[in-house]
């Protein structure tokens, strides 16, 4: 049983801190067992029914997730860790953007990465090859990361003080929108090989993000993607959204992304 949150063993979610031997998996099997058994013996044909009572609940359904997200946020704040939640469709280039960033800013900033996928540790392997600490979360059938998974991933990863923590969410523009992980900023990535109406089709994600990175702009001459239209659509959904255009292949726009990243790193307050 997990001492932090009381979860029991048996879940499909696994956590694997990538290391050089890669023999022992920090697999942390647990179920989201909420302390009740589903086969509790109440009888609907009880001969002496209890009187009916109204219970005012008024509880947010995501309350538990939000509580743990705030707990993560407190941990990040205390250690001055800039946590970023990277969300997008599969194939937009999240991992490539990370690889490029980790290589280009090596020595300038300290990084750690949490990778979220349903299966495989392919992305963690790619990140590990850049010399960065990384934990792979495999959600099994799960369509998103939640704050509880981040809490557990961090127990193995232990990101350093004053570092940047990239959390690469499961590739999915729908479900991860609802789950606060405790991040400082949410970065939505879209590539020019997708439709320019994507912000309108998946507005929740664009509405809940603070930065939109438009990736693969080196391919613009070859695809019918109207970059001004996608920007206008994204702004319609979220007028506060910042937008940066990049290509991880040509390197175009990456300085702006790095500038944004550095601007978000809070210097520890000196008294």
């Amino acid at each position: 049983m997990c001492a932090t949150c009381g979860c029991d063993s048996g879940s499909k979610t696994t956590y694997k801190l990538r290391d050089k031997d890669d023999e022992h998996t920090h697999s942390h099997p647990h179920v989201h067992n909420h302390g009740y058994t589903h086969d509790h013996p109440h009888d609907h044909d009880h001969p002496h029914p209890h009187p009916k009572t109204v219970v005012d609940v008024e509880q947010d359904v995501l309350h538990q997730n939000n509580l743990l997200a705030q707990r993560n946020r407190g941990y990040f704040d205390a250690k001055n860790i800039l946590a970023l939640n990277l969300v997008s469709s599969p194939g937009s280039g999240k991992t490539t953007l990370l690889e490029r960033t980790l290589k280009d800013l090596k020595g300038q900033l300290e990084f750690a990465v949490i990778e979220g996928d349903q299966q495989t540790s392919n992305d963690a392997d790619r990140i590990y090859a850049t010399g960065t600490s990384v934990t792979q979360i495999n959600t099994g059938k799960g369509c998103h990361l939640d704050s509880h998974m981040i809490l557990h991933a961090m127990q193995g990863l232990k990101p350093k003080e004053n570092s940047v923590l990239f959390i690469e969410n499961v590739g999915n523009l729908v479900c991860p929108a609802m789950f606060d992980l405790g991040e400082k900023e949410r970065v939505v990535i879209i590539s020019v090989t997708e439709g320019d109406d994507k912000p309108l089709k998946y507005p929740d994600m664009f509405h809940s993000s603070t930065l939109c990175v438009i990736n693969k702009i080196d391919l613009l001459p070859y695809v019918p993607f109207d970059i001004e239209k996608v920007k206008a659509n994204a702004k319609k959904v979220n007028h506060q959204l910042e937008i940066i255009e990049v290509s991880c292949t040509s390197g175009q726009g990456l300085q702006e992304w790095y500038g944004w990243l550095k601007s978000k790193i809070l210097q520890p307050e000196t008294v």
């Binding site: 909420h34 009740y36 219970v55 609940v57 538990q64």
Partner: peptide
């Protein structure tokens, strides 16, 4: 589905706190 699971969790907790069975 995870939303429904959270709803079940909240409802059962509250019902048990009220000493209810149904």
């Amino acid at each position: 589905l995870s939303i429904v699971m959270s709803i079940i969790n909240i409802a059962e907790q509250q019902a048990r706190a009220a000493h209810a069975t149904v």
